Computed example of a mutant assay.
Amino acid sequence: MTTEGRIEACRSLLARLARFTGRTLRGEWHAIVVEPVQRLARRGLSGLLLAFVAAFGVVFFQGIAQHPLGRLWVTRLGGVKADLPLWLSLLRTPVSLYVPALDLPVWAGITQLFLAFAWAELTLGRARTLAVSYVTTLAGTLTARVMIAMGPGWGGLGLPPEAAHVLDTGPSAAVVGLFTYLSVIKRAPVVFTLTGGSMVWESIAIPNLAGREHLIAVGSAIVLGLLHGRRERLRALLRSPLPTRHRAPAPDRTAPAPAPAPTPSRTVPAPARADRSGDAAMTSAER
């Protein structure tokens, strides 16, 4: 290939790449900005109820935790640790979504929290938003228990026993899970890179309990996003290994029914009628 041919091939490749990037960014802008804004215009501020409740809940618990007695009650209501019984951790997990980590600045994550719940509520609805946020948080909490039980080692997967005493609260796993889930179902690579990529970098730079749970939240959100819209296919896959019962074929209702046999009709003989002319002649003869 000549030099001019190589230059033309590079130009064609760059043009295709530019068109693909433009289409991707335009589609992502429409998915993450235009569609939610249109839904917000139709539904009004009621479409942001979960976002306001989540932001207010974090601010409320953060304000209560500034006092010693309030911190005690916040810990009793939403404090989750790996050294607690499993039933108690599961009972406190829904409240722990709104309890910020006491050693981290709360105001830094309020914007991300509000945007994540607002976008999810306008796109998914309230029930699915709560389900995704809870499942991703619970997946991180339960997996952390497994890692602590494994102990240090295991190729860097295990955690030391001291991690069981670390307070495991905050909405960060739910926020990361919602952003990742939405970026998967909406095919938004920029948002996916900013959320999932940042969590990977965080876990590498600071290998702590929170970083591991964020990675688990990203992984579980990816799985949920890939399963989105495949409910009927999953039901078919689950039903296929089950034995099927052979039933007798139903009668064909389209076939014409046989005509009923004709019933013999009974004819009643009519009463004999006298000949009026003959009767009249006999009467005249007798007279």
Rank of each mutant, 00 (worst) to 15 (best):
Leu157Met: 13
Leu194Glu: 03
Val59Leu: 08
Ile110Met: 00
Leu72Asn: 07
Arg42Gly: 05
Trp107Thr: 01
His30Thr: 11
Val184Thr: 02
His165Glu: 11
Leu69Arg: 07
Thr2Glu: 12
Ala173Gly: 02
Ala108Trp: 00
Arg233Cys: 04
Ala281Ser: 03
Leu194Val: 05
Ala164Pro: 08
Leu122Pro: 09
Ala257Trp: 09
Pro105Arg: 01
Val200Leu: 15
Ala41Arg: 15
Arg253Leu: 15
Ala51Pro: 09
Ser133Met: 10
Gly27Glu: 13
Thr193Glu: 05
Thr195Phe: 03
Arg43Lys: 08
Leu237Pro: 03
Ile216Asp: 03
Arg247Ser: 14
Phe56Lys: 01
Ala164His: 05
Leu224Glu: 03
Val135Asp: 07
Cys10Ser: 15
Val200Glu: 01
Leu226Asn: 05
Val184Lys: 00
Leu182Gln: 04
Gly57Thr: 04
Gly70Arg: 06
Ala261Tyr: 03
Leu104Thr: 01
His246Arg: 14
Gln112Lys: 00
Arg42Val: 12
Ala118Tyr: 03
Thr111His: 02
Pro241Ser: 12
Ala149Cys: 11
Gln112Asn: 05
Val218Cys: 10
Gly47Phe: 10
Ser198Leu: 05
Leu102Phe: 10
Ala257Ile: 06
Ala15Gln: 10
Leu182Phe: 01
Thr93Lys: 00
Ala173Ile: 00
Ala127Cys: 09
Ala270Ile: 00
Glu202Phe: 08
Ala257Glu: 15
Tyr98His: 06
Ala188Pro: 04
Ala270Asn: 00
Arg145Ala: 09
Gly158Arg: 05
Ser89Gly: 15
Leu104Lys: 04
Thr136Asp: 08
Ala285Met: 06
Leu138Asp: 06
Leu84Ile: 05
Met282Phe: 12
Thr254Pro: 00
His67Trp: 14
Ala54Cys: 14
Ala9Lys: 12
Ile32Gly: 01
Glu35Trp: 03
Gly5His: 14
Thr180Ala: 08
Ser133Pro: 07
Ala15Thr: 14
Leu86Gly: 03
